[in-house]
C-alpha cells in the first residue's frame, strides 16, 4: 500500500498574500513537485505584529485562529522564517497559563516549518528542477537564521539550480533593518541598517539578491531601487521553483 502523500497547510503569510503572490505559488510548486498535497486554509496573519508590540491578547487570539485552521493538516509550511518562527517558537509560551491551548500550540509547533527547511530537512529534497543563469547573493533573515537555524538549506537547494553562481556578501547574517514595526517606529535607523546591507549586496557584484522573508526583501528592494541600483530582488522560492519570468520585487512589466 503506497504511503499517502503528506498534506501541507501553506501558511502564505500576510506580506506574500498582499505583495508577492508568486512566492506562494512557487512554494506550492516546490511542495507538489516533492510529492505533497497542498492546501491553503483560511488565514490572515500569524499575530507577530501584535506580539512584538506587546499586545499579547491579540497575539493569542490570532494564534488560536491559526492553530484551529491548521491543526487538521500534517504540516504547516511558510515561505518565511519569521512567520514560521512565530508559530514554532512563540505560540506555545503564549499559552503558558492555558494547558489546553498550550498543548495544541505545541503540537502545531512541532509540525511547522519554513519552506526550504521543510524541503531539505523533512522531505530530503536534494535537487530542484530549475535554471537561473546568473550570479546571486543570499541574505540570511534573522528569524529564520537564529530561531530556526536556516543557513545551509536554501544554499544547498540553490546549488542545484542550473546556471546559478552564489557569491556570499559580507555580513549576510546582520539584520537588514526591517524588523516589522521597527522600520516605521525608527525609520532613520532602519534606513541606516538597510543602507549598509545594500552596500554589501552591491559589493558582491551579483545581479540578484535572494532571501527567505518578504519583509527583508521589500526593505532591501526599496532601498536598492531608491539608490538606483539595478540588482534584482527575489524570494529564494521563486528561483528554486523557476518562477522568475515575472518581474522582480518592485519592478513591473512597464519598467525599463
Amino acid at each position: 500500500m503506497p504511503i499517502s502523500p503528506p498534506r501541507i497547510g501553506l501558511f502564505v503569510t500576510c506580506l506574500v498574500d498582499l505583495f508577492r503572490p508568486t512566492v506562494g505559488f512557487a512554494a506550492i510548486k516546490l511542495l507538489e513537485e516533492a510529492g505533497c498535497v497542498v492546501e491553503v486554509p483560511t488565514q490572515t496573519c500569524c499575530g507577530q505584529p501584535a506580539y512584538n508590540s506587546g499586545d499579547r491578547a491579540t497575539a493569542r487570539s490570532l494564534a488560536q485562529q491559526v492553530i484551529a485552521a491548521f491543526e487538521p493538516l500534517d504540516y504547516v509550511v511558510a515561505p518565511s522564517g519569521s512567520c514560521a518562527g512565530m508559530i514554532k517558537q512563540h505560540y506555545p509560551p503564549l499559552f503558558s497559563n492555558d494547558p489546553g491551548w498550550r498543548a495544541r500550540a505545541e503540537r502545531l509547533s512541532a509540525k511547522t516549518f519554513e519552506l526550504t527547511s521543510f524541503l531539505t530537512d523533512v522531505l530530503g529534497v536534494e535537487q530542484v528542477n530549475a535554471s537561473h543563469p546568473g550570479t546571486v547573493t543570499y541574505h540570511d533573515s534573522c528569524s529564520g537564521l537564529r530561531e530556526l537555524g536556516i543557513k545551509t538549506q536554501p544554499r544547498r537547494l540553490l546549488g542545484t539550480v542550473e546556471g546559478v553562481e552564489l557569491r556570499e556578501m559580507e555580513e549576510s547574517e546582520v539584520c537588514c533593518g526591517f524588523g516589522g514595526t521597527f522600520c516605521i517606529k525608527y525609520p532613520e535607523l532602519s534606513n541606516r541598517m538597510v543602507s549598509d546591507k545594500a552596500g554589501h549586496i552591491l559589493a558582491t557584484g551579483a545581479d540578484t539578491v535572494l532571501a527567505g522573508d518578504l519583509g527583508c526583501l521589500l526593505n532591501m528592494a526599496g532601498k536598492l531601487q531608491r539608490d538606483g541600483a539595478t540588482v534584482q530582488v527575489r524570494h529564494v522560492a521563486e528561483v528554486l521553483a523557476g518562477l522568475t519570468e515575472v518581474p522582480a520585487i518592485g519592478e513591473s512589466e512597464g519598467d525599463g
Binding site: V12, L18, P21, S190, S195, A221, K223, R226, P247
Partner: peptide, 14 residues
C-alpha cells in the same frame, strides 16, 4: 523618505 515602496504584483494570493 528613504526607500521606494514595492507595490503588490497584482491581485492578492488569496
Amino acid at each position: 523618505a528613504w526607500r521606494d515602496l514595492p507595490v503588490p504584483q497584482g491581485r492578492t494570493f488569496q
